[in-house]
Design a protein around this nucleic acid. Structure first.
Length: 420
RNA sequence: GUGGGUAUAGCUCAGUUGGUUAGAGCGCCAGGUUGUGGCCCUGGAGGCCGUGGGUUCGAAUCCCACUAUUCACCCCA
């Protein structure tokens, strides 16, 4: 029983639906190429330490959701719980900073693992498309990152999305903001939830994120990060908005967006839909100027996002986006006699070499059954091979349209005779 | 980790107030004379009624536990 059940929170992509993924992948690659953004492929697992340092050891993701284990040499290994840390590691390890900056890269269909309770739009293994751009602190990069995501949605025909942006400041203004927030909360902390009391000590910013009604009430009119940005961060955020305005990208400034990963600085954003249930964030990202240094590289500004492929597909299906189905079989070869069956494999191979999509007889069925099968394949032509005709180098070809016209042709001239 | 829903054939689901060999549609397989598809007709295969206990003369049906699944909280893509 257990062995024929996929592990909790995982999902098969069946041969009958993989074309949808391939379609999305193709469009994403086209968009990325236009941005001079090249694919990077990094491991599915990394040293646990990378995520502790990179993502942050007081985040939920690191605290309670990681798939961590010891390998046979007692190294602590973790299956990627997000995409950015691995790419950042790759950037440092391979000295990619020696390239002309900025350098842009993307990953596609990268598996991501989190031990969570599955629900609609949430899996224990899901797949992300993500973009990371290193080397520039200019807000044009933030805008460019967002622009890639918006272009992908546009290219795939997805509407009904809302871009939310915010700025959470840098190592200069964040501490000042934290102090202001703590002062505002004051003694009210006593009536807040236990996790907020923990956040109060370790990461006050995330109190804003809490969904517990009493906590929400306390911070309802709390000061926002935007109000406390230093001059540099403030200007950065303003210029980002000017960029988005001029690019025609609609957005909403939402001071509630703070994100659950510690590495973000300045810009954070989420692209949200309300059409796929409670888990409506299809894309999330921002700037992470301290991450590279945090994991041991030279200080390096960077920005990026992650996009959930499963959720993207859900949104597309909800929006009834038409995804072109794969091409049907061009030609089926029907044969019942032993010699003809052998000949069918020879012919199939030759036709495939000509670029024709061919299915050969593998099931030893009656001709009638084979014709039914060919019909279900929705194929254009059927070749009927008979021992007697083979002797003359001939074969009967049938057009499977409503007329069902048949004619006898030379085996050597099949490609010429059919219209594919 | 916490709540609610669901669990009958490959799929979508029926199954009356507990009562004989558990059903339908779709799909699959085979036929409907003289090697030929679509529509139609006939037949067939395929279910330990999620698992384990309990109540009862008798359980798919009632009760309990477990498991799976699903939705939601939390968090995030």
């Amino acid at each position: 029983m257990l062995i024929t059940n996929a592990p909790k929170g995982t999902k098969d992509v069946l041969p009958s639906e993989s074309y949808k993924w391939q379609y999305i992948e193709e469009k994403i690659r086209q968009i990325c190429d236009l941005y001079n953004c090249n694919e990077v492929r990094v491991p599915t697992f990394e040293h646990t330490e990378l995520f502790l340092r990179g993502v942050g050891d007081n985040t939920d993701i690191v605290n309670k959701e990681m798939y961590t284990f010891l390998d046979k040499a007692e190294r602590s290994i973790t299956l990627k719980p997000e995409g950015t840390a691995g790419v950042a590691r790759c950037f440092v390890e391979n000295s990619i900073f020696n390239n002309p900056m900025p350098i842009k890269m993307y990953y596609l269909n990268s598996p991501v693992f989190r031990y969570e309770q599955p629900q609609s739009g949430r899996y224990r293994e899901h797949h992300q498309f993500g973009v990371e751009m290193f080397g520039s602190d200019e807000p044009t990069i933030d805008a460019e990152v967002i622009s890639v995501a918006m272009d992908v949605f546009k290219k795939l025909g997805v509407g009904n999305l809302e871009l939310n942006i915010n700025s959470i400041g840098c190592s200069e203004c964040r501490p000042k903001y934290n102090a202001a927030l703590l002062e505002y909360i004051g003694s009210s902390i006593d009536k807040m939830c236990t996790s907020c009391q923990e956040r109060y000590e370790k990461n006050p910013l995330r109190i804003l994120d809490c969904k517990v009604p009493t906590c929400k009430e306390v911070v309802k009119n709390a000061p926002t990060t935007i109000e406390h940005l230093c001059e540099d961060c403030s200007e950065h955020f303003e210029r980002l908005q000017k960029n988005l305005d001029s690019m025609g990208i609609a957005y909403k400034v939402n001071p509630q967006i703070v994100r659950g990963l510690d590495y973000y600085t300045k810009t954070v954003f989420e692209i949200i839909t309300n059409s796929i249930g409670a888990q409506g964030t299809v894309c999330g990202g921002g700037r992470y100027n301290n991450l590279i240094e945090e994991i041991g590289g030279k200080p390096m500004p960077a920005a990026g996002f992650g996009m959930g492929m499963e959720r993207l597909l859900m949104v597309m299906e909800n929006d009834n986006v038409e995804i072109p189905e794969p091409k049907a079989v061009d030609l089926y070869i029907a044969a019942t006699e032993d010699d003809a069956i052998i000949k069918s494999m020879e012919i199939a191979r030759k036709l495939r070499a000509e670029g024709i999509k061919v299915e050969a007889p593998h099931m030893k069925k009656s001709l009638k059954a084979q014709m039914k099968y060919a019909n279900k394949l929705n194929c254009r032509y059927v070749l009927m091979l008979w021992d007697e005709d083979i002797k003359n180098g001939e074969v009967l070809v049938k057009d499977m349209d409503e007329n069902g016209e048949e004619k006898k042709i030379k085996i050597d001239e099949i490609v010429k005779e059919i219209n594919i």
